[in-house]
Structure formats: structure tokens, C-alpha cells
């Protein structure tokens, strides 16, 4: 399993390998951080080969999809992460039977219908705050793996391409990524532009990047 980026490192020599993995994870986050722009589909019109164009657009969409704001709640395990450093969620929580938390400690125990910033940096919120199902785990996966996964109706909640486009462009929990509240870094661009990009990818054959 992948190690958390930066945090919970036991400071012992034997964990050098663990540290290495952690640093890789961090580098990924920093790279995204540096480019807050999201290109729309028009920026890819010059690519004549449709497959290549489609792949390029998905790679651009990856700036959003692989952003910590999104990946934090698409964990491989049963626990979400938080922050740009993708540290484990504190307090500790688990997905529970329906991805909305465990009995006695559900997401809405703390998360409100909207961001609450009254307490310092506050608690982010959405009426439907919850974890992505385990089949939609993105944490630690390559963009190619995520792409294949998104298209696979056995793993994407049974959505066809139109439903996927609607989900990416309209879903309010997806949209939270652009309005995270407090001093949280939002994902690049706007949900509208992301929706256009995703739709253009879908209509250009929905080709996945090689890696």
C-alpha cells in the first residue's frame, strides 16, 4: 500500500524506503500546485490525431482529477485524507457501510451542508459529503489507471458517458473542489471548463493516456 505523503513518518533509519515513496507522492502534489491554469478543449484543437487529442485532453483533466482536493476522498483504503499534503484525515474516520461514515461517526457529524469557516480554517461542507466508493479509488493510481476505471461501468457506479459528463460538469460535491473554503487551494480552472474538457474528451473517443 502507498504511504502517506510527508506525514506519520517514523523517524528510523529502516524507513528510508518509506520516505522515498512519500517524497514521490509529495512531488506530484507540488507539480500540480505550480500550474493553477486549466486549458479548455479549444487549446487542443491543433492536435490532428483524434486519439492523441483525446489523450491530451484527459491528461489536462488529470490536473483536476489527480488534485489532492479530489483524490483525498477517493482513497484506496477506508479512510480519507486531507490537505495538499494528503495527510490522513484527523480525526480518524472510516467509510462505513454506505461511504457516509460509520455508525456513530458519520461524515455529517462534522461536515455541514456548506463550508463552515467560523472556526479558524473551519470544516469543508456539502449536503452530500461522503467518500467515493472503493471501486473509484484514485489514491496512488496512475492517470491511465484512473481513466480506464472512470470508463468502466462496473467500477464507476454504472454511469454511461453522458451521465459521466453530467456528473463531472454538474455534481455539487465535484464542484466543491473549486470552492473549498478557508485558505484551501482550489482545483485549477472552473467546473464549467472542466466539464467542457471532459465532454470533449468523451466525444473524441474517450481515449486513455498510455501511462
Amino acid at each position: 500500500m502507498r504511504m502517506p505523503a510527508v506525514v506519520n513518518i517514523v523517524r528510523t533509519a529502516s524507513l528510508a524506503a518509506v520516505l522515498g515513496v512519500a517524497l514521490l507522492g509529495n512531488a506530484q502534489a507540488t507539480e500540480i500546485d505550480a500550474d493553477q491554469q486549466l486549458k479548455g478543449p479549444e487549446a487542443f484543437e491543433h492536435i490532428e490525431d483524434e486519439t492523441e487529442r483525446s489523450r491530451a485532453m484527459f491528461k489536462e483533466a488529470g490536473k483536476v482529477i489527480q488534485h489532492p482536493r479530489c483524490v483525498n476522498c477517493h482513497p484506496v483504503s477506508d479512510t480519507p485524507r486531507q490537505g495538499m499534503d494528503m495527510r490522513p484525515h484527523e480525526p480518524p474516520v472510516v467509510r462505513g457501510p454506505d461511504n457516509h461514515g460509520a455508525p456513530g461517526m458519520v461524515c455529517s457529524t462534522c461536515h455541514q451542508p456548506e463550508n463552515v469557516d467560523s472556526a479558524g480554517n473551519g470544516v469543508p461542507g456539502n449536503p452530500n459529503w461522503h467518500l467515493a466508493p472503493r471501486s473509484m479509488a484514485w489514491y496512488g493510481k496512475s492517470l491511465a489507471e484512473i481513466c480506464t476505471q472512470i470508463k468502466d461501468q462496473d467500477r464507476n457506479g454504472g454511469m454511461d458517458m453522458d451521465e459521466l459528463i453530467h456528473h463531472m460538469a454538474e455534481d455539487s460535491l465535484v464542484g466543491w473542489g473549486w470552492n473549498p473554503g478557508g485558505d484551501r487551494t482550489p482545483v485549477p480552472g472552473t467546473q464549467e471548463k472542466f466539464g467542457e474538457l471532459f465532454a470533449a474528451w468523451a466525444h473524441s473517443g474517450a481515449h486513455c493516456p498510455a501511462e
Partner: peptide, 8 residues
């Protein structure tokens, strides 16, 4: 279950 509920 007890741990999950009361970890907060």
C-alpha cells in the same frame, strides 16, 4: 465498531 464511532 466501537473504535470507529468513538475515535472522534
Amino acid at each position: 465498531d466501537i473504535d470507529n464511532a468513538l475515535a472522534g
